[in-house]
Amino acid sequence: MARVAIVTGAGQGLGRAHAHAFAAEGYAVVVNDVGAAAETVAAEIAATGGTAVASTGDVSSWEYAEQLVGTAVERFGRLDVLVNNAGLVRDRMLVGMSEAEWDLVLQVDLKGHFCPLRHAAAYWRAQAKAGAGSGGRIVNTSSGAGLMGSVGQGNYSAAKAGVLGLTFVAAAELARYGVTVNALAPAARTPMTESVFAEMMSTTDAEFDAMAPENVSPLVVWLGSEEAGGVTGRVFEVEGGRIGLADGWRYGLRREQQRRWEVPEVGKAVLDLIAEAEPPTPVYGA
């Protein structure tokens, strides 16, 4: 029986590329988006001999996310991979950002990861408890903005950093059911990033489009495979022909004593630590 993947935000850009890539590897694909583009992409896959069904809805809706997982199971008998890709931006400096711009980005980009993940995880847990096997795969989509921050994208950076925290916790909690959870920080040309990568696109090699979203998809498909069962809780940066493993937060240098610090002592300890440590990667745009 063919493996089954859900790809959210698959009506364009990275999601569309991922959906086509899974279909090319023989997966049945549930193509999600909020508009008619989901139907278009499902039809494109069918036209090339693949198997796909469209599911239109907002992945930040608890009820719809449950329905989305149910669509995969009802139509294809199983679910093997969830690719959380749906997202949007509302860029603005923090001093000018509205509450609505903050709330919308956190809702779509972070809650829109949690809701499908939660319902897919419940399905895989039930499968494992029933002795039906599991081996589910979740691939979340973060960003360099989530890793390092990005000027003018405080809402987006917060949401994408939240995706990383969600990934680490989900990887730890779902391991008992054989489910892996990883995240990407991709760089590619999409409707969201056209203005950001305009200069890069103008200098792209005619024989290799380094900004094509299709460059990201092979890693996503591999992380969704049975072969990737030993890889979980990891964050990958991918752009063009480059795959990198993000190092992330880890314990750093310390100063310690067997008593409470006095205020006059703290400054020297902090400044010594900063002087000895590697400087942080700069925020994008700083």
Score class of each variant (00 low, 15 high):
Gly35Lys: 00
Gly224Asn: 02
Val4Gln: 10
Ala38Ile: 02
Ser55His: 05
Pro218Ala: 10
Thr232Lys: 00
Val196Gly: 09
Ala121Ser: 13
Ile243Gly: 09
Ser202Glu: 13
Val221His: 07
Pro264His: 11
Gly178Leu: 00
Val283His: 01
Ala212Gly: 05
Gly162Phe: 04
Pro279Glu: 04
His20Lys: 00
Glu278Gly: 09
Val30Met: 06
Gly146Val: 11
Gly240Phe: 08
Asn32Gln: 01
Leu14Asn: 04
Ala210Phe: 15
Val105Trp: 06
Pro280Val: 11
Ala24Gln: 13
Pro186Ala: 13
Lys129Trp: 11
Val181Asp: 03
Thr56Ser: 03
Glu173Val: 03
Glu39Phe: 02
Ser55Glu: 09
Ala198Asp: 14
Gly26Ile: 05
Gly26Gln: 05
Ser150Leu: 03
Glu101Val: 00
Gly144Leu: 15
Ala210Trp: 13
Thr51Trp: 05
Phe208Pro: 08
Gly35Val: 01
Ser134Phe: 03
Thr281Tyr: 04
Pro282Ala: 06
Leu94Tyr: 14
Ser60Ala: 15
Ala161Lys: 03
Pro264Arg: 03
Leu104Asp: 15
Thr190Leu: 01
Asp247His: 12
Ile274Lys: 08
Gly165Phe: 04
Gly136Asp: 09
Pro282Tyr: 02
Ala161Tyr: 09
Ser61Trp: 05
Tyr251Ser: 13
Ala126Gly: 15
Val7Gln: 01
Val7Cys: 03
Phe168Thr: 08
Leu94Val: 15
Ala228Asn: 04
Thr204Arg: 00
Ala2Ser: 15
